[in-house]
Amino acid sequence: MSAAASPAEMRAFIVERLVGDTGEPDQVAAAARALAERAVPAIVAGLGESLGVPVSVEVADVALIRMAQARPGVTNHAMTIAASTSSPDALVLAIDNDAVAVVVSLLFGGDAGEPAAPIARDLSPLEIEVATSVFEQIARAVNGSGPRAFEFKLPVPMAMTGQDMARHLLRDGPAVRVVFSLATAASRGTVALTMPQRVLLKHRGDAGMPAGDGTGPDWRQRFSEEVMRSAVSLEATMPLARLTLGEIAALEPGQVIELDEAAQTSARLTARNKTLFVCEFGKLGQNYTVRIRHPYDAGQDFIDGLMPG
C-alpha cells in the first residue's frame, strides 16, 4: 500500500492490521463456499473446452487462513497472483504437481481412464504454461461480471514455481482458501484459491447468508462503528544508527549516539505492536510531531533489510 489510498481503503487497512480477521468466520466461509460453488460449472466448461474431454471439479475444502500461507511449500507446485482494482494480491492461485500431471496428460491425448504419470521433478516451461492456462480459466470463472465482479486484471501473470515461488513475498493478513479437486477417473490433483477476506467481503459479503439472521448490513454497520470507537495507544519510534555488538557493549552513561541521516524520515507509528505507518519526525511550536508519509509495507521493509544502505 505504498500508493495513495482512499479514506475507506485506509480505514480497512488499519482495522486489518489491528483487529486481524476482517469478517465474522461463518460469514466469510459461507461467502467463499457460495462463490466457489457458483464458479465450478464455468471452470468445468472452460477446462473441458481447452482439453477436449470432461474433467471433474469439486469444492474439496474451505478454510480461514493467513495470506502468507497461500504459497505452496513444495517447489514442484506452481502459483500466480492476480491483482484487481481494489488489491494488488486479490487472488492467489496454487496448483499441485498431481493436477498439473492430469491436465498435461489430457492436453496431449492421454487416456482419461489411465493414471497420469506423476511429476516428481521441478516443472518444465511447458508445464508452467499449462498451469498458467488452468489459472486463467479459474480466475475468469471466479471473477464474475456486472457490479459484483472482482475486476481481476486478466490475463493472469505467468505461473511461478521452484525458487522463484519460494522467494516470493506475500503480504500477510486474514484470508480464506478454497481447495478445488481436479480429477479424472484414475487421477486427482488440487488447485487452491486464496483471497484476502476484505476483498471477498467487499464483493460477496452477502453471499450464503440467509435473510434475518442478524448479520445484515445494519448489524455490520453498528458493529463496525463500535470497533472504530475502540481506543488504542499510538507509539512513535525513531531508528538509531547501526552499531556492532562490540560498540553497544562499550557504551557508557552520558555517551551521545549519533542518529542515522534517514532517521528523522523513518519514524514508525505503531499500535498494539503492529506497525501502521512510516512517518517523519518534526516539531511544531513547542510540541514534537510525526507526519505520516505512507502506510507501512512489511514486504518492502524485509527487502530493504536485506540490502542495507
Rank of each mutant, 00 (worst) to 15 (best):
S87D: 13
A112G: 04
S86P: 15
P88D: 10
L106I: 15
V100G: 06
P88Y: 10
A99H: 11
N97V: 05
G113W: 10
A90T: 04
A116I: 07
S84C: 07
A99N: 06
A101D: 02
L93P: 01
A94H: 08
G109P: 01
L106C: 14
A112D: 05
V102L: 14
T85S: 15
L107N: 02
A99G: 02
P115N: 07
P115F: 05
A82Q: 12
V103Q: 04
A112Q: 04
D89C: 11
L106P: 02
I95R: 01
L106S: 06
G110S: 10
G110R: 01
E114S: 15
S84E: 03
V102M: 13
V102N: 00
E114C: 07
D111P: 06
N97G: 14
P115R: 04
S105N: 06
V104Q: 00
D98C: 11
G109S: 11
S84W: 02
G113N: 09
F108P: 03
F108Y: 03
I95F: 03
A83Q: 11
I81R: 02
A112H: 02
S87K: 09
A94Y: 09
N97Y: 07
G113I: 08
L106M: 15
D111Q: 09
V92Q: 08
T85C: 11
L106F: 12
S87E: 06
P88Q: 12
S84I: 07
S87P: 01
L107H: 12
V103G: 08
V92Y: 00
D111S: 12
A90R: 02
S105F: 09
L93N: 07
A101K: 00
L106W: 12
A116L: 05
E114F: 14
P115M: 07
L91M: 13
N97P: 10
V103C: 12
S84K: 02
A90S: 13
V102R: 00
I81W: 01
A94C: 15
N97L: 08
S84V: 05
